[in-house]
Design a protein around this nucleic acid. Sequence first.
RNA 1: GGCGCUAUCGUCUAGGGGACUAGGACGGGGCCCUCUCAAGGCCCAAACACGGGUUCGAAUCCCGUUAGCGCUACCA
Length: 479
Amino acid sequence: MKPRVRFAPSPTGYLHVGGARTALFNWLFARHTGGIHVLRIEDTDRERSTPEHTRIILDGLTWLGISWDEGPYFQGDYAVRHQTDAERLLAAGKAYRCFCTREELDAQRAQAERSGLGFRYDRRCYRLSQSEVEARVRSGTLSTIRFLLQDEEIAWDDAVHGRISFQGRDLDDFVILRSDNSSIYNLAVVSDDIDMRITHVIRGDDHISNTPKQIALYRALGYEPPVFAHVPMILGPDGKKLSKRHGATAVGEYQEQGILPAAMRNFLALLGWSPGGDREIMSEAEMVDLFTLEGIQKKAAVFDTTKLEWMNGQYLTALPADDLLEPVRRQLARMGVAEARDLIPLIDAVKARSRTILHVAEQVSVRLDPSRSRLDAKGEALAQKLGASFSGNLSLALEGLEQLEPAEWKPDRILEVVRGVAESRNLKLGDLMQPIRVALTGSTVSEPVNELLVVVGRDTSIRRLRETAQRTSGGVGAA
RNA sequence: GGCGCUAUCGUCUAGGGGACUAGGACGGGGCCCUCUCAAGGCCCAAACACGGGUUCGAAUCCCGUUAGCGCUACCA
């Protein structure tokens, strides 16, 4: 039988990196086993669920390259089945009506807390006589349906943790149907997972304590529970559950920061999963091939953005510029930069020394700007640091460069010429190259200057260098 | 408080009784390359939480302690 897995987010917020990782594991497992990946939106919390959040979650998954074979299904569409299942349990004596109000329950809880004991529902409504229950229902008293939990051991063989067991007596007779006939999470999930014939439930660690309740529900409903695989949580740098105060937690934020989906996916896969050995950078196909539930870590993992950026840098250098064209274009558009010409050579020139698309776009825009002849504050400061020779050396290099015909404007030729000038003047190559770099980019960091000159173009380069040399000839800062 | 889960370098991890003077990666430090910065190559510092067992032998198995985290709703 084909495995069937599901990713089941609630549309009450953005797609969180933890959720994205859970989705990734489900998808990887489905692909690896030839199974089906179902997407189910758990929108039963009407108060907090919005279509906007649903859209963001779908977009985030798509951006990451995580697809689904069925759905999205919306849990809210199955309210009738949930109710029917609850009533079936009630009719079978496996659940009972509870007339306790929220206020009464709160009081009982507070009472239990005062006496230092953990609260557990005392089953007072279970002890009501049949006629009493009927009388209250007839009188219109609101009631919930509670599941009657047997006092027995409930255990399962978790695919990542091994055997986990709970005692029924430590669990509560939990509510499965609210007084407005809407289902509580635990019932809705089990009812849907049965209906959708889910074989493997791969979800966050925080659901471990829900699992015995759900297993009891499966059995009471007459079904065998699926395989459970509880994946570890993702933590912030301080070891606490990852949250807003740790910075970016939504997948969309990383997209905006210029992280590549392939890098994000690779990084997320390695957070709590390892193929064994030293494998780190993996293609989608390799990850699918290597993925197993056994390779999932038991321990929670800290989300390390520094390593994410390193990995993104790896993808940036390895990917052909063509693959980067669209994201760079989007970023340039966001920055309000007009792309006057073919961006491929520009991207090629800078991608190896960039960690994000943002970073690539910034450098591209500097090289793209034909009017950038005046040094900005930073460039000015750098020029000053190079000292009085800045303008003179710039002019020297310029004399050589101006000799070059447009057809000769190639990295090898440029290097040859500049090197010739340097040797004839007894200067080091860097004495001539660095002023050019600063003049053209306003920075001491760039690709090799001969390549930079080609990327910027002969005419623009010469014009800009000439203007900068003139402006600073009376001493740096004189202009 | 109760119940549950977890525990290898700062971080992500390899390891599943002898192959461990514990390997890789990020980050840090150094060197090489070099017109700068990356990339790349080489090197260094850095960990088995603690205590008991089991065993000829334990990072690996068992028990306890400690610590961290999760759950403990008519939320999901």
